Computed example of a mutant assay.
Amino acid sequence: MKIKLIFAMLALTGSFSAHAALNILACEPEWGALAQELGGDKVKVANATSALQDPHRIEARPSLIARARNADMLVCTGAELEIGWLPILLRDSGNAAIQPGQPGNFEATRYVALLEKPQRLDRADGDVHAAGNPHIQTDPHNIALVADAMSKALETVDAANTAYYQARHDDFMARWRAAIARWETQAAPLKGVVIVAQHQAYPYLENWLGLKQVATLEPKPGVEPSIASLSAVLNKLSITPAKMVVRSAYNDDRASAWLSQRANIPAVVLPFTVGGTPAANTLFGLFDDTINRLLAADKVAK
């Protein structure tokens, strides 16, 4: 009787395991949101960072290591964005399934043509990424490319639910393509608008919408602006005026406020990722709110 009971319990446990949700750890909120869109109720998603944290500078805390240890799949940006903390997370988790080269390790930047590849690599130039600028999530066309690849990765890791993931992908892409068409029509007045950015975080957004960035508040990527560097930007704007200065939700607001007051241009907070503002609580909301904020600032500047 005891043996039969043990086998029955094992069979029951196996049945639960077969239907357990896939544990996904996303390095950034945009990929967590995309994994949820594609995975539906077959996945359980946790984010390693929030929209109010600089993704370059995260501490691999024990609680985060524990999440990595239990993950079936790790979804990150890549291109060295997480170089300061992800290697520690991978090492200390001891989770073979999410190590580089395994099906459970997914890097979004592998599926997108990166902008701003450096001509040289020198730490004196600041926080420069060898492969190119990793902030790909500000162009919805990049999200679509990553969605295609992530859907296939989900099918590989969880082959039993392939048909489900394919259906979720098809539904998401239909809604996403319609949204892109709407956003591009709505954002047409932004083409050619001159901006200043706090960090080199928006080349993909600028490329998509036709914005013209003339300066950054950071003298070098990842280096906090000083009065001297801000004054240099202000002098530049006397020759090439800008209509607004933009920063991400996680950036300190003092530098953009300084320039806004002295150049008499609006300071715009962009969500940068899902959760950066109250309205940007989904992938669709991220782009809705980004465009609305840019259009509102452009209207004020005219």
Rank of each mutant, 00 (worst) to 15 (best):
A242D: 01
V223L: 11
A18Q: 14
L209M: 06
K117Y: 12
Y204S: 00
R120Y: 05
V233T: 07
L270C: 07
I65A: 05
M173W: 02
D125L: 14
A267P: 07
Q99E: 15
I88M: 07
S229N: 00
Q186C: 06
L190P: 01
A35F: 06
G222E: 12
W31F: 03
E116D: 13
I6S: 08
I195F: 06
L10T: 13
G101E: 02
D288M: 06
L270D: 05
S63I: 03
T282N: 05
R110T: 03
N23C: 07
L12W: 09
R57P: 00
G40V: 05
D171Y: 10
L217K: 09
R123D: 08
A181K: 14
A255N: 04
P100W: 12
R175D: 07
H19C: 07
A249Y: 08
R293S: 07
V268N: 03
R182V: 15
L89S: 03
A179T: 04
A130Y: 02
N47V: 06
M73T: 07
L234G: 11
V45S: 03
V214N: 01
T290M: 05
W176N: 08
K302C: 01
N207P: 00
I195R: 09
T162Q: 14
Y204W: 12
S231L: 11
G132F: 04
D41Y: 10
L12N: 08
V269H: 02
A51R: 13
A153V: 10
M150W: 10
N133T: 00
R69G: 04
A179I: 02
R123F: 10
I24Y: 11
A263F: 09
L259W: 11
G126H: 02
R168A: 08
K302N: 11
E82Q: 14
A167Q: 15
L295I: 00
H135R: 03
A163D: 13
K44D: 04
Y202R: 00
S63M: 04
A263Y: 07
R110Y: 09
A11L: 14
K117D: 07
D139W: 03
N264G: 05
T277E: 04
D252I: 10
A60K: 08
M1V: 11
E116G: 01
M1I: 09
I3T: 14
M150E: 03
W85G: 09
K44F: 12
N95K: 14
K152Q: 12
L74Q: 10
A147I: 06
